[in-house]
Amino acid sequence: MMEYIGATGIPMTFDPVSVEDGIDFHFILSFAIDANSSGNSQNGVFSPYWVPTLTPEGVAAIKESHPNVKVMASLSGWSLGDTVLHWYDPEDPDKWVSNGVSSLKSIINKYHLDGIDIDYETFPKNQTKFAYCIGGLISELKNQSVITVATIAPFYSTTDPYIELHDGYGDVIDYINYQFYTDKVRRPQGYLETFKLRAMQFGAEKLLPSYEIAGRGIQGDAFFQALELLEDSGFALNGVMIFSADAGSQNGYYYERESQAFLLNATTV
């Protein structure tokens, strides 16, 4: 189970979120950004921009009370305030990787984190150093045993750079948090067809179905009908990604509870 938390400015904490002890639950802090508060790039020097109520003490406490919980930092996201964030090719990619490792190691140690999620969402049209930089960053963090899990979060218009990243560094990527809600599919059969397409691009083994609470794409219990259809079609349901706990707080974390119940009862998990 993967869930983003802390991106919207709502003063969130981990405690109210429904966590079943029988399933691995990954909270994804949103976001750590290699930019200053004005949105100017910092050459791989990351800073945390999730809500300040998600504290290092809070991370330590939720992990102590639920040993099945891991906490990650998502990198970049769509924007910082009103400033849209873009992937930029650093002049010295190796220096960017070195800065990224150093700055993230500091954040990871401070917040007791277990991994990182890659969520750069805007790219230049020409070929970039994205795969080289991000692949190198994940590899080095894993080689140094700084993290134990790494995920990527492509969506419909960013598949190309993420396919390149996955093709080159798939051995250090654990899950694909594909944002299926961006495909604007609202019915279970359409969800299945889209899942098949993304499974061809990234492989089915690491691909997680995803849901945006009160947002885009499939909504309500049709999502769970789609999960049943995926299972009936032979896909192993290795987890669910939800965006986000901030929205889930408005409905008593219904989708978190139902998703975990579905996964615990799934025959292919």
Rank of each mutant, 00 (worst) to 15 (best):
A7P: 02
A7H: 14
M12Y: 08
V17P: 01
D21A: 06
D24I: 08
F25P: 00
H26W: 14
S30C: 14
D34Q: 08
A35K: 13
A35G: 06
N36S: 05
G39Q: 10
V45W: 02
F46D: 04
L54K: 09
E57K: 02
G58L: 01
K63S: 03
K63G: 02
K63C: 02
P67W: 08
S76F: 00
S76Y: 00
G81L: 11
T83V: 15
L85Q: 09
Y88P: 01
K95E: 15
S98W: 02
K105L: 01
S106R: 15
D117T: 14
I118G: 00
D119L: 06
Y120A: 05
K125V: 08
A131S: 11
C133F: 06
G135T: 14
G136Y: 01
I138S: 02
T148Q: 06
I152A: 02
I152P: 02
A153Y: 07
Y156K: 15
D160W: 07
Y162H: 03
Y162T: 10
E164S: 13
H166M: 10
D167Q: 14
G168A: 11
Y169H: 10
N177E: 11
Q179C: 05
Q179K: 09
Y181Q: 06
Y181D: 04
T182C: 05
K196D: 13
R198K: 15
A204W: 01
P209E: 13
Y211P: 03
A214I: 07
G217E: 06
D221F: 02
A222V: 09
A226P: 01
A226G: 04
L229A: 13
D232W: 00
D232N: 10
G234H: 02
F235Y: 12
L237Q: 12
M241V: 12
A247R: 13
G248I: 04
N251F: 06
N251C: 11
Y253L: 07
Q260C: 06
A261T: 14
L263E: 09
V269I: 12
